[in-house]
Design a protein around this nucleic acid. Sequence first.
DNA 1: ATATTAAAAGACAAAAAGGTCTTTTAATAT
DNA 2: ATATTAAAAGACCTTTTTGTCTTTTAATAT
Lengths: 144, 144
Amino acid sequence: MFSKTCEYAIRAIIYIYNKSNLCDCKVGIKEIATEIQSPEHFTAKILQVLSRQEIVSSVKGPNGGFYMSSAQGQIKLLDIVRAIDGPRVFMGCALGLSQCDESRPCPIHTEYKPIRDKMLTMLTNTNVESLATKLEEGSVFLVK
Amino acid sequence: MFSKTCEYAIRAIIYIYNKSNLCDCKVGIKEIATEIQSPEHFTAKILQVLSRQEIVSSVKGPNGGFYMSSAQGQIKLLDIVRAIDGPRVFMGCALGLSQCDESRPCPIHTEYKPIRDKMLTMLTNTNVESLATKLEEGSVFLVK
DNA sequence: ATATTAAAAGACAAAAAGGTCTTTTAATAT
DNA sequence: ATATTAAAAGACCTTTTTGTCTTTTAATAT
Ligand code: FES
Ligand code: FES
């Protein structure tokens, strides 16, 4: 459903938000990659993109690393997914027509659109903080 | 959401079922590719796969081509998607954990699973005939 | 039987996604 | 000021997806 890139992005962001708020510190790419079991350099590139979009913050140098403010905890999953896969994600036609158009629908439009819209609603209503909270509680997991 | 391969597959199947039942004839790959606006040889390969899985039928030679019985009209979208993308499609964890596991869920499992399940239900309940009927009515379209 | 036809099969190639490694830049502790 | 540190940037590679082209196989009309 999501690209690998998106999967790593979301897992990394949840980890960073949780950890950097817990210890009020910055967290390095090496630790992130280890903890979420993702390829280190690839994850670094993804975080560069998210950093440019100000979804995550970073500082270089000693004691540097990635961190997020509590304001950034209000960022929605949709913001992350859009930053990676582009602004049109979960907007297109299921059968690849040039656009999803009510007035000229593809054969599965009626069946598909409600589901796609639920997905979009879910991504719009879910923020990083709520997910990080569940992680801190220990009721959800980022690996295995 | 679906791979390009799946998109072409579904569009091709709907076209073939509709056309081959309407005129009680076989329909060639050239016509299919033109009518659904897909790459001809690529579409041919996809239909080879679907043909091996007996989702569509074909005969070689003069007046040959692809066709589908009315029994094949009862085939579900899920059968097509599985034939192409494998049997585990829409079963995995949203965040790429090794499996989607209730007892060890990822942070978005609660939000994601109901949507994924709706998708699976939709694909299970939608058959080719119902889509082809809509196409024949002229209420839906395969191109643009 | 043979020529014709159309799908099947297979070799290739381009593009995108996923991933690795090295060099550069900038922050900061000393 | 300088050495150290860690992210940013960029070159490069691998795999998968998507797509093209040619050859082979098999059906059938003649
Ligand atoms: S037109 Fe295809 S999903 Fe809306
Ligand atoms: S565990 Fe991730 S979706 Fe179920």
